[in-house]
């Protein structure tokens, strides 16, 4: 039941943060980021489908449960670094910006400042939001107890 999963790479982690980011937050942070490299579009944003798989009984054999819309985009920076993004939904701009940030993060000269000014704030925002939801859920925690029936 517990599958051993390989540790995620840094790139996988930041790509996940970018994919899950609130679009307006990401757009604002990237807008305010001065000195961006120039980017050329390698593959314009394209929306398609991914078939989502689930497991029989949550842990058994896989089956196809239904699809989701996904938008992907690929860019290349002026220093020839490629950035890619695959994001749930149909927001082409989100995919394009995520691809740009992915490229910037692979640039040694930019990596730290992009982490500090884009990824970390997005991560904090996401974990705050998650924590809020968890707190509200926690307030509905229930302790049922059974009563002894009156018959012998």
């Amino acid at each position: 039941m517990t599958q051993i999963k390989p540790e995620k790479t840094n790139r996988q982690n930041w790509m996940a943060v970018l994919a899950k980011a609130n679009w307006t937050d990401l757009a604002m942070l990237w807008d305010d980021f001065g000195n961006k490299p120039d980017f050329k579009i390698l593959r314009p944003a394209e929306t398609g489908l991914i078939m989502l798989r689930a497991r029989t009984g949550a842990v058994g054999a896989a089956f196809n449960m239904g699809e989701a819309t996904v938008t992907r985009s690929s860019v290349v920076s002026d220093s020839q670094i490629q950035g890619h993004a695959y994001i749930l939904g149909r927001n082409g701009l989100h995919a394009e910006v995520a691809a740009e940030v992915d490229a910037a993060l692979q640039d040694d000269a930019l990596h730290q400042v992009v982490m500090a000014r884009i990824i970390n704030p997005l991560k904090t925002a996401a974990s705050n939001k998650k924590h809020q939801a968890q707190q509200k859920t926690a307030a509905t925690k229930v302790d049922f107890f059974t009563l002894v029936r009156g018959e012998d």
């Binding site: 390698l42 593959r43 394209e46 290349v76 490629q82």
Partner: peptide, 13 residues
């Protein structure tokens, strides 16, 4: 690996 992939159709659809 880091060489640019050749791109596809200019107007895909």
């Amino acid at each position: 690996m880091n060489s640019l992939p050749a791109t596809g159709f200019p107007n895909p659809s």
